[in-house]
Write a protein that binds this DNA or RNA. Structure first.
Length: 582
DNA sequence: CGGCTGTACTG
DNA sequence: CAGTACA
DNA sequence: GCCG
């Protein structure tokens, strides 16, 4: 075919990464030339840039690292490019050209390069000047300017008027779910970078889990944070040293392990207790089964919930929510798309209007952070001027009961006396289903009256057809055959987890910080508070133990902590801090 | 070397 | 109190 | 495990 005959190509920053070296092979096998020496630079050449250095606006990004990774002398090469302005496109174009059989260089594919900007590595062109504010703030958190949006799904445009987050949405990854840690970012960043780093991510996920099981929560946390850092790192990691330099939470220990993995492809001993981890995972994925129960059951050789049922039937009477965790095991591991979240919120708000029109319901959690898929829905209730949590608790209870009557709420995971009255029969039905003796009413302890939170199982009407993103559904854990008989899961009409929280109106800001999360962000900012002799909780920011400084205004809380305000969408990438640099 | 987030509900 | 859960 |  010789599509590239007589053409010269330059790979930047180098062609050592697996994709680029593959692409350079493609060029050679089609009679093209790949430039490897500054002598061969030619203004007719086509410059191919690793996609991970191109942001969503086709601008060159992260130039510092980019230049550092050059194979040839960066000064010579770069000044040549600035001077001669050869065509510059992202390297992925090659496969496109081969597919269509010709080389196309439409201007919109040109990567924007600006010489003024060599220091920051960020390019702001005039027409974008209006948004340069946002760009400026992005610049601070340096390395994470991800190319974005392009989920390729039918509906993502249709909903986009609704939420400003849809466009800028950063993908949510499941931080604490070691099994389904599908990196939804796979198409954001250079694919091969991700698949390369994938080995590392998986390894540290497993180590985190292993130490969690061992009870070493802090070592586990160390690995977890490193894992998150690597997930966010937009480049292929070529050495442990590079990772230690560039990624927060990667220290000497993890850098060393990275190097071993890069050198040998694996970590010695990584697969050691893999089986145990899998067994424990099976149990702990069920709502209300924690590591402690899972370990105990596993130690006794139990393999399934059915086994547990035989050995410890009381567990399912006493900890009855496990019955629902079991029944909806598969549904609750499945994430829902934003349109489904919107729909649920709609239903909740409609009913709430009847229960108490003055009360507001606000989505929190991964949804407000712009996640494309949410594992559950967190709804925060508050009412202007109302600091009476008893009242708010009653509103939530009434609301939940009304939704139960309408058939939206499938199950409750806590009981107030009233809820037990109406819901008790469903619990008994589940108890019967697993052939246990139905306990008399009195065996249940008196339920607490005003709860401040409700955890629910929630089903939309069957007319609503849930969508699922290209998720590795098959990677999710499914119930063992022995356990299927209890299942009420149905991916075409799934049950979702919906959590109700409430807060005093005067505590709205603190509550929003809490429920927006993510967890890692909360921990991070709370440490900041402690370091300044303060305490941050969902109720407010305190000086010392209990002098309230601020609780209503979330921006003011950031201010008092001496932190720049960070919007919900950016709290995912909050592991920034210290700019590690050479 | 010591610290590593903070609260709510259950039995 | 320990265990589980929520962010 | 990492960080100060």
């Amino acid at each position: 075919m010789a599509l590239f005959q007589g053409k010269k190509f330059l790979f930047l920053p180098n062609c050592r990464s697996s994709t680029l070296s593959f692409l350079s092979q493609l060029i050679r096998s089609n009679d093209g030339t790949v430039i490897c020496d500054v002598e061969e630079l030619d203004k007719q050449m086509i410059t191919l840039i690793n996609k991970s250095f191109i942001d969503k606006d086709q601008k060159l990004t992260n130039k510092e690292l980019f230049l550092k990774e050059f194979e040839m002398d960066p000064d010579i090469v770069w000044s040549f490019i600035l001077h001669e302005r050869p065509a510059c496109v992202e390297a992925n174009c090659i496969s496109e050209w081969l597919k269509i059989g010709k080389i196309t260089l439409p201007p919109e594919f040109n990567v924007l390069i600006d010489e003024e900007d060599t220091t920051t590595g960020f390019h702001v062109i005039n027409e974008h000047a209006g948004q340069s504010n946002k760009e400026a703030s992005d610049r601070e958190s340096s390395m994470e300017s991800q190319s974005d949006t392009d989920i390729g799904s039918e509906t993502s445009h249709k909903d986009s008027h609704e939420s400003p987050f849809v466009q800028a949405a950063s993908r949510e990854e499941s931080l604490d779910n070691p099994i389904s840690e599908t990196v939804a970012n796979a198409d954001l960043v250079d694919e091969e970078n991700v698949s390369k780093n994938e080995t590392l991510i998986k390894a540290f996920g497993r180590l985190a889990r292993r130490y969690e099981i061992k009870g070493d929560q802090y070592r586990s946390k160390g690995y977890k944070l490193a894992k998150i850092g690597i997930e966010r790192y937009p480049h292929e990691i070529l050495s442990g040293e590079q990772a230690r330099r560039d990624i927060a939470s990667v220290g000497p220990g993890i850098a060393k392990k990275i190097q071993i993995i890069l050198d040998t492809g694996s970590l010695p001993g990584l697969d050691e207790s893999f089986d145990l981890e899998k067994k424990l995972n099976y149990f702990t994925q069920c709502h209300d089964v924690g590591i402690y129960s899972a370990k105990r059951w596993n130690l006794l050789g139990l393999q399934s919930f059915a086994d547990v049922l035989k050995k410890f039937p009381e567990v399912f009477i006493r900890d009855w929510p496990i019955l629902f965790g079991w029944s909806y095991y598969e549904d609750w591991l499945m994430k829902m798309c934003r349109d489904e979240c919107d729909e649920i919120l709609n239903v909740v708000r409609t009913t709430l209007k009847r229960v108490d029109p003055a009360c507001s319901a606000e989505l929190q959690g991964s949804y407000v952070r712009g996640a494309q898929e949410c594992g559950d829905l967190d709804i925060l209730f508050h009412k202007k001027g109302c600091d009476n949590t008893t009242e708010l608790g009653r509103i939530m209870e009434k609301l939940a009961l009304a939704l139960y009557d309408q058939g939206y709420v499938e199950c409750f995971l806590q009981l107030s006396p009233k809820i037990r009255q109406v819901f008790g029969s469903r619990i008994r039905e589940r108890v019967r289903k697993c052939k246990l003796k139905i306990p008399s009413q009195e065996e249940y302890p008196p339920a607490v009256a005003d709860l401040k939170k409700y955890f629910l199982g929630f089903k939309l009407k069957s007319e609503f057809k849930p969508r699922y993103l290209e998720t590795s559904a098959d990677k999710l854990i499914k119930l063992e055959t022995d356990d299927r008989f209890m299942s009420l899961s149905s991916s075409s009409h799934p049950c979702r987890r919906v959590d109700f929280f409430c807060c005093k109106y005067s505590e709205l800001g603190a509550a929003r910080i809490q429920w927006t999360g993510p967890k890692e962000f909360n921990r991070w900012i709370r440490i900041k508070a402690v370091q300044k002799g303060m305490k941050l909780t969902q109720h407010g920011l305190y000086r010392g133990e209990n002098i309230l400084l601020e609780s209503f205004d979330d921006k003011r809380i950031f201010e008092l902590l001496g932190e720049e305000y960070v919007g919900p969408e950016d709290r995912n990438r909050m592991i920034k801090k210290r700019q590690k640099q050479s």
